[in-house]
Amino acid sequence: MPEEHGPAKSPNWALQVTPYMWAASLDGYISPFRRGPTIGVEKSFPDVLENLNIGGFINIWGRYDRFVFSGDIMYVDTTDSHSTGSLPAFTIPGSGVIPPGGNIDAKVDTKQFTATLMGGYRVIDRPQFTLDALGGARVWHVSNNVKLTGSLGGMSGSVSYDESFGWVDPLVGLRAFLPLTEQLSLQGQADIGGFGAGSDLTWSAMATVNYVFSDRLSASVGYKVLDVDYKHNGHVYDTRLSGPVLGVTYRF
């Protein structure tokens, strides 16, 4: 989200907070529990919004001299239903083996927390352009409450199960800022990581157009993508969130 205009006019330190809305669509593959069946998910933003219980997004950015800090925090709580079948045999933890050929109706309440924390150094600091080199980590935590109703032949039954898992991805990235006028600017930030330490691969990118209303207040509109490919210990979380963003920035 936007930074102070004109590095030459800036003090040695800056701090800003940007709550924002993200009209994200969702595409990917998810297992609702460990070693469970993998479910394909493809949802537009209206579909995501229909299943949303609560969500929040906030970006924090700071600078002291040429040292910079970037933090982006996301929390989303959704409830969704899926129907799959005919399935191979699989195991529900604590409930035993489900034989092959069954059909499953799954109601999944998912809570996802993601925090991207990065620090770095301003390698280019000019009035007409700045560039920051960044390094850090992205923390993921996913909690699922799953209610399964299954049928096989003439028999049916249901079971509920709670499960949480998480991981940490190392990251490297860049952040660029280009003032166009006293009020208008462009900004882009991208990172890549995982490298098998947490997920196999994760990356994100965001580009915004920013408008300054006052020394304290500005607004941004743009586009953001967050992608992750995590397959470990029976869990599958291979998803991409993408869509427009709209934020309001307050500078301290």
Rank of each mutant, 00 (worst) to 15 (best):
V221M: 14
I60D: 10
S218Y: 04
Y223L: 02
N51K: 13
G56T: 15
P244V: 13
Q187K: 05
G62C: 10
H232T: 12
I54V: 13
G193T: 12
R126L: 06
A207D: 12
G198R: 10
V212N: 12
G36E: 11
E4K: 07
S44R: 11
S214W: 04
N210G: 07
I92R: 02
G247I: 05
N144W: 04
T38M: 05
S204A: 12
T91W: 05
G247E: 00
D132L: 03
E4W: 07
V225D: 01
P88G: 09
Y64M: 03
D169F: 13
W13G: 05
G135V: 14
N144L: 01
D72C: 02
T78D: 02
A115G: 14
E163L: 00
P2R: 14
F69I: 15
I73R: 03
Y64E: 08
K107L: 09
D229N: 15
V248Q: 01
D27A: 03
A24C: 03
H141G: 08
A106H: 00
G85H: 06
A23S: 03
A219S: 03
S164I: 09
L49I: 09
V228G: 06
S44G: 08
P93E: 12
V245W: 00
A219M: 06
T181V: 05
S151L: 07
H5R: 14
I192A: 15
P11N: 08
L134S: 14
S70V: 14
Y211S: 01
N51W: 03
T114H: 02
R34H: 08
K111W: 04
G36M: 09
S81N: 07
T208E: 10
N210F: 07
F33D: 05
V248N: 01
V76E: 10
G36K: 10
G198T: 13
F113Q: 14
A205Y: 06
G198C: 04
L226T: 08
F213Y: 09
M21T: 12
H232F: 14
S214V: 05
S214E: 04
G40D: 09
L87W: 13
S158D: 14
N12K: 06
G102Y: 09
V17S: 15
T208V: 15
S44E: 13
L26G: 03
F252I: 08
G119H: 04
P2Y: 05
S158R: 05
V76G: 01
V142Y: 06
T110P: 00
D77I: 00
N53W: 04
S164T: 09
L241Q: 10
D238R: 13
L52R: 07
K43Q: 15
S160R: 13
Q187C: 00
G222N: 09
Y250G: 01
R63C: 04
V248W: 02
S242H: 11
N12G: 15
L217I: 12
P37N: 03
H5S: 10
